[in-house]
Design a protein around this nucleic acid. Structure first.
Lengths: 174, 174
DNA sequence: ATTATGTAGTTAGATTTTCTTAATATCAAC
DNA sequence: GTTGATATTAAGAAAATCTAACTACATAAT
């Protein structure tokens, strides 16, 4: 997963496994293009992804998702506002907060970029028979499952390591 | 694709489409964890991904993949060498170049991180019947196809735009 | 009510990190 | 031997993030 793969099992891998990896690589290319077109850096792009998905968040929530300090998040939002990608509006219940939301233009732009692809895939699935669709969903669920549990395991590992004294030099790390 | 999706078609989307998106999101979480454990930034991580896949590259090749200047690439490699993630060895035929390759430790570490997941997926596919496996491969090929053609289209668009005079403010861009 | 305490977000200043341009050394190719 | 390619260095600029201080508001306690 995670972009490319280490080579060893390369030859012995099932075509499907290789295709999954290809999808991840293509996704990164896709993101690079979008970042370039939007003229923003990776952090700001991640913020946009969250905002496009959730429609609106407070700066504090964004800070959590991005693993940034509140101060750094303020500058992220400022940059995005300047470029017209998001806007700040008052929070309905808490007057200390803002509701940060993607601008209509940026939603429109993202849709224009991604929809053709999304529709492609969606229609492709629907082209299969009922049984086949179930197989596809089942397989993908398995992938999600494997990734999720791997992530959980790694998070747990690093929790343990974070209580350690000094920062190693990549040897024992990972 | 590309991480999250815009919401509109959200409800009407096929479960498979949603799962594909989930995989992309999980991949980003995965990469975040790996970066944190390796203690490197996104650029250096991308370099590692390419190196782990191709086993070795010259600095110039890396510069191309990363869209960086040769000078910046030198510092990328320096940083990775310092942390023990890669090493420079003399190029067999051209003595101006180097061969940059991932250290044995980093290959080992990456494998340790990813293999459980990769094997999971690989074995999951093999668990299906012949017909079902073909369906999965066929579907994934379609996804790759859609993404590739979308990327090609966007690249072509931006080629046209790059001959334009000034940099817009996100309105017409994208 | 009033005060005290905590939370959300911003600002200011400084630091750190990353990248670029320009100059240079080494080598390849013709 | 001239020209082009490859990578590095040096110096500086640009960008991103952090800490600390501060404002405005919410929440809880008295």
């Amino acid at each position: 997963m995670s972009g490319e793969q280490v080579s060893p099992p390369r030859g012995s891998m099932h075509p499907a496994s290789i295709l999954v990896r290809d999808v991840l690589v293509l996704n990164e290319t896709m993101e690079f293009i979008m970042r370039r077109e939007m003229d923003i850096n990776e952090t700001d792009f991640q913020a946009m992804q969250h905002l496009l998905k959730l429609r609106s968040m407070s700066p504090g929530e964004l800070a959590q998702m991005l693993h940034l300090t509140p101060a750094a998040t303020t500058t992220v939002i400022d940059r995005l506002v300047t470029k017209g990608h998001v806007q700040r509006s008052p929070h309905p219940t808490d007057r200390r907060r803002w509701l940060v939301s993607p601008s209509a233009e940026s939603v429109q732009s993202a849709m224009a970029m991604l929809m053709p692809m999304v529709l492609d895939v969606d229609q492709a699935v629907r082209g299969y028979g009922e049984h086949e669709q179930r197989v596809i969903v089942d397989f993908l669920s398995g992938v999600v499952q494997s990734m999720s549990s791997r992530i959980a395991a790694l998070e747990q590992q690093s929790e343990a390591n974070h209580d350690q004294p000094h920062k190693g030099t990549a040897k024992g790390e990972l």
